[in-house]
Design a protein around this nucleic acid. Structure first.
Lengths: 221, 221
DNA sequence: TTCAGATTTCTTGTATACATGACTATTGAC
DNA sequence: GTCAATAGTCATGTATACAAGAAATCTGAA
């Protein structure tokens, strides 16, 4: 259907940003994008407006749109908030999960185990997303689900960097184990705490983040 | 400057939604808005796109934009998340506030006292906003500040309804007192808990919210 | 009288054209 | 040689035109 042209463009561009194809700081030329996607500037602009509203691109009046470069500090802050929201989701999930949620959580957890033990970081990356979404869903708060999903998505590129750190994947899976246990046992506060520290960029992980940001600079440009 | 036309339009329409002039569920006709603001459809569409991206309006393909009607359940969920984020801001503020933050917090608190004791709900409504923003600021997390401000803004109409409840204003001010004390004493977890329950729609307040939503139905249409 | 099909109208989605502000390059003066 | 000012180019912002889908109305039959 012709109606979703701008919608598809939005997803396409957003994807480019979130995967790092469109590097932070790069200009988003309207005519260039238009010709690339074979459309006129109008739907491109509308897509950029939407991305501007959610903070992925900065729209400077009369000076074009650029991919936002959050900088290490803001990235840290985003993880900080993510940790809190995930903790909240876990806490609610522990109190509200249904039989269906339980099945999904366990299935996602099992898939993570598979990819973690086989050492497939790409697979783990995706299974990890499913796992966390299962928690958001089990919180039975539509709004929290939306907020978590949006922030999770925005943090995608940095989470990917983090998985490069040696052994992070196995440590991550180990943490999942405790999280699942706490949720299924209905221990809300324990689940909150475990999820918080699972997400939070604390201690060594802070240094790891900064280091991977620095070394990925070339890749992203 | 001609550059900020769509920007101004966005704020204008957003304001209409947030103050209740544009009721939940009402259609946003592009040509109508265009003639109202004396512009063409193009900047109107761009403004609507932005509002659509942040969830204030729903853009149904080929079927126009309507003001989102969250419904009681989702409103409750939004307050639930707001409570958590405010709690987080308070907790961070308790640990990070500077001398400047301290002065701002106390000033905002004093203004709230004035309007609360004089019984001026409109004044309290605004002073209350300043007070909460002072907390966000004192958290020294730019991202958290943005998230809190955005959600705070979205909840505006419902907070206004809440203030109509008898004595809510004075109770609210009393709670501020404890919050300020905890923050300035550096008691992070206490500040978190107090702010959480200050925002959360629990107990009687849930019934109050539902009731005011029902009775405000006429006003909003 | 009611329901179904078709036509008409209206609104949205996209393209294009035009105007205006920003950036760049060139020229002139110090 | 360097700096500044001006002219020219280019990208953005807005308006308008056109295309196409959705809704509403009208007509006909059961």
């Amino acid at each position: 259907m012709t109606t979703s042209t701008f919608h598809k463009l939005r997803d396409e561009i957003e994807n480019g940003i979130v995967t790092g194809t469109l590097a932070p700081g790069s200009r988003l030329d309207e005519v260039q994008l238009a010709s690339r996607f074979g459309v006129s500037r109008t739907p491109i602009r509308e897509a950029l407006m939407q991305l501007g509203a959610i903070g992925l691109v900065e729209i400077r009046p009369r000076r074009g749109a650029v991919v936002v470069d959050p900088g290490p500090n803001r990235i840290y802050e985003m993880f900080e908030v993510m940790a809190e929201l995930e903790g909240m989701a876990g806490s609610l999930a522990a109190r509200r999960y249904t039989e269906e949620d339980r099945a999904k959580l366990l299935a996602a957890h099992a898939k993570c185990e598979l990819s973690a033990t086989s050492g497939d970081t790409d697979a783990y990356y995706y299974d990890n997303e499913i796992f966390h979404h299962a928690i958001y869903e089990a919180s039975h708060s539509g709004f929290l689900f939306d907020q978590c999903s949006a922030l999770h998505r925005r943090l995608r590129p940095y989470r990917r960097l983090q998985l490069r750190v040696r052994n992070r994947m196995k440590v991550s899976y180990g943490e999942h184990d405790g999280i699942i246990e706490a949720i299924l046992a209905g221990e809300a506060e324990k689940a909150r705490g475990l999820l918080r520290s699972h997400i939070a960029v604390q201690g060594d992980r802070f240094g790891d983040l900064i280091a991977s940001l620095a070394s990925s600079g070339q890749n992203m440009l």
